[in-house]
């Protein structure tokens, strides 16, 4: 029985800029169920990041209703309903990796002992055990991004919002991290919303793919993936996989993304 955790109805968002209003989101309706892995895909400027930020109460919609676990976004944020992974790792250079991961825990008032215990656990989860004492600049880009995922996981929110977390990484590292992310998702049973530019990434990871198009930012198609939850990398060569990728491409064409 699907249990909705995020539901958006008629979301509109207009930014007032010096060049006049920019219609970032128009009439976005979407329901995300518990345990879903939902990818948002579309060209730059289609509002996928803006929508994710709206869920996180980092932007306020100008119209419509959004609820997370039945709460308004800012209440949900205070209730620590989600962890957010940003495009750039955004680790603080004066803190070690452990210090960075402990930062949200400090802010949320966890005890020292519990902080240490949680940091060790999430470091292990993203396979960075032994790197806790290093500073961010001593780590590669992929490791930094893993540390920022660990930071978002540290306070154990049920929802993980990820904004192109692997966008800046090469394909080999990206494959590895994608597989690790699926493992994590299977292990922790979290609900994940994931923004990406890559069709194979979206198809490989998601149970639901949301195709968006720009000017104004809107949803053109929602594709439910029939792929099983357990996905070895070879699944990308199966006819089902290629068929879903084809549907995504069609959806993008429908939104004039290739014009």
């Amino acid at each position: 029985m699907p249990e909705p955790v995020i539901s958006a109805q008629g979301i509109d968002l207009t930014f007032q800029t010096a060049d006049g209003p920019v219609h970032a989101l128009k009439d976005v309706n979407l329901t995300i169920d518990r345990g879903d892995f939902v990818s948002f895909i579309g060209p730059s400027g289609c509002g996928k990041t803006t929508f994710l930020r709206t869920i996180a109460a980092l932007e306020t919609p100008t119209g419509g209703r959004i609820s997370i676990n039945g709460q308004a976004p800012d209440e949900a944020r205070r209730a620590r309903a989600y962890g957010y992974v940003f495009q750039a790792p955004g680790l603080y250079p004066w803190r070690t990796i452990s210090g960075n991961i402990a930062l949200p825990l400090e802010i949320m008032g966890f005890s020292r002992a519990e902080r240490a215990e949680r940091v060790a656990r999430v470091l292990d989860l993203v396979e960075l055990s032994g790197f806790g004492g290093k500073y961010p600049w001593q780590l590669s880009g992929g490791m930094q991004q893993r540390a920022s995922i660990a930071r978002a996981l540290s306070f154990d929110a049920d929802i993980l919002l990820m904004d192109e977390p692997f966008g800046a990484l090469d394909e080999i590292v990206r494959d590895r991290l994608n597989r690790a992310l699926l493992g994590l998702w299977a292990k922790t049973r979290k609900t994940i919303a994931f923004v990406t530019h890559s069709i194979p990434e979206a198809v490989y990871l998601s149970t639901k793919i949301v195709v968006m198009s720009p000017r104004p930012g809107r949803i053109t198609r929602v594709i439910d993936s029939p792929l099983p939850r357990h996905r070895p990398l070879e699944i990308r060569d199966t006819p089902e996989f290629i068929d879903i990728a084809q549907q995504v491409r069609e959806g993008l064409r429908l939104g004039h993304s290739y014009d």
């Binding site: 996180a56 980092l58 944020r77 205070r78 989600y82 962890g83 957010y84 940003f86 750039a88 955004g90 603080y92 004066w94 930062l103 949200p104 400090e106 802010i107 949320m108 930071r151 306070f155």
Partner: peptide, 26 residues
């Protein structure tokens, strides 16, 4: 890039000052 995580954790102004602004200013 550095402020957004703080917001996503609902950090107070004092927490942002001691843990982000002051170290950045050193």
């Amino acid at each position: 890039m550095q402020l957004d995580p703080m917001r996503s954790w609902s950090a107070s102004a004092a927490q942002v000052f001691w843990r982000l602004r002051l170290p950045s200013a050193m």
